[in-house]
Nucleic acid binder design. Structure first.
Lengths: 123, 123
DNA sequence: ACCTATAGTTTCTTCAAAGAAACTAACCAA
DNA sequence: TTGGTTAGTTTCTTTGAAGAAACTATAGGT
């Protein structure tokens, strides 16, 4: 009675955090501690500068990621998880584990499909 | 060295599961056990039939949701989490909790912004 | 003959997120 | 003065997801 419309809003909240590359960014920052912009780009080839920037801005605005600019030339900007952001660590790592297992499961299902007809022959 | 490109793929996997309404669907199914199509629609006003159907199909295809059709007129179709889907329960509930707290935090920040200037007066 | 209920499907439209590619700023080194 | 480095921004295009609204199938009731 008080938990029903809840579900919707919570999902909405999670979406802010889950945007194509945000999980990957956070996992990398948790793993490496602190990273420069170019390092993030390096461990995540496939994301464009524009998108990476905007995802980082989003996370920063939510208080999950901290951005530190060093006034140098060439520029140096370091990103890291805030303490608040770290409250997501367990969830993110569970997602990571679950996702890995899920991929394995799907791969297995592809193989077992091929051998499905000859099921008891091969074992 | 073996965990870097990983992050990308895992995020990709999670995306399949996180699509606008999927978290809400799963949380509801976990909470209520088994639900008819119309019941899902009822607890999630705001989602159209088309979208609800397609999200359910996705979840079904991933082996997370089970769909049971009763050959009746008018039709009766029941949805529930599979055992495999239930392996997401902990993650989903943690997301639920975290999301709730996150919303509260943001609400608080809105209020505290108003009173920020008079900070030590009020306490 | 018509209405109702349930669980969809179909078609058309809209919109935001994402991608590609080029451009910028600032300073240093050769 | 040309080039290199880093961390972006800008512009334009593409794509996919989602929404709105109407249509479908089927049987039982009146």
């Amino acid at each position: 009675m008080d938990n029903t419309p809840d579900h919707c809003r919570v999902a909405t909240t999670m979406e802010m955090i889950i945007g194509k590359w945000k999980i990957a960014i956070m996992l990398n920052l948790i793993h490496y501690g602190t990273m420069r912009f170019s390092e993030l780009r390096h461990v995540m080839p496939g994301v464009t500068q524009k998108v990476l920037t905007s995802q980082l801005r989003d996370l920063e605005q939510e208080g999950i990621v901290k951005r530190v600019v060093y006034p140098q030339v060439p520029p140096k900007v370091e990103y890291s998880m805030t303490e608040y952001g770290m409250s997501l660590q367990t969830i993110l790592e569970m997602m990571h584990e679950w996702g890995k297992a899920h991929l394995q499961r799907k791969t297995q299902m592809l193989f077992s499909k091929d051998t499905d007809n000859q099921n008891d022959k091969n074992n």
